[in-house]
Design a protein around this nucleic acid. Sequence first.
DNA 1: AGCACGATTAACT
DNA 2: GTTAATCGTGCTC
Length: 197
Amino acid sequence: MSKNNFLQREFYDRPALTVARELLGKYLVRLEDGQRLAGIILETEAYCGEEDLGCHCRAGRTARTQVMYGPPGHAYVYFTYGIHWMLNFVVESEGNPAAILIRSIEPLQGMEVISARRGSQPMQKWTDGPAKICQALNIDNRFNGVDLCAEDGVLIVEDAEPVPESYVKTGPRVGLNSVPEPWKSVPWRFQISRIKH
DNA sequence: AGCACGATTAACT
DNA sequence: GTTAATCGTGCTC
């Protein structure tokens, strides 16, 4: 897990569903004041372009969505419900807006810091939701547009062994209550199930 | 300038 | 299962 095997721009410059699937099992790493906070990515969701009525890009290019129209391998961080931040990765080629929401990680490093921020909850619930990840890793609007592929980046994803297909579960994306079909139900959510087959 | 609502969470009953 | 918390964003007037 050294800094020379973190995912490069080519990884993100691919179809959103491919990237969402392959991000499973990789290490999300947040460098905060020289301290490493890291966890295994367990769950992702793909949001794919202006045609996807579940994606913020359905509104076209706006102040909020412009980072998704930029080059891949950057963070898209937005605010919702008046309280919560959400971490996404911009994917696909420039001008082709799409993003991957990071929904759940299993914390590995920086447990003291994460505990200080999430310790009021049982450990299992420290980073098992998109807003919880941002709370645990201290991610907010300052990270919108941050380059995930910079040499001295503060937010990177490190490579890891591919997760076998039999460990991966797919399903509809969460929370799209007023989104019309088929977008509401397309199986663009990916997660590592802990059950072997 | 005003308004309705959301890619959620935690604390309720 | 239900609901309050809380404000940026995009849309309408």
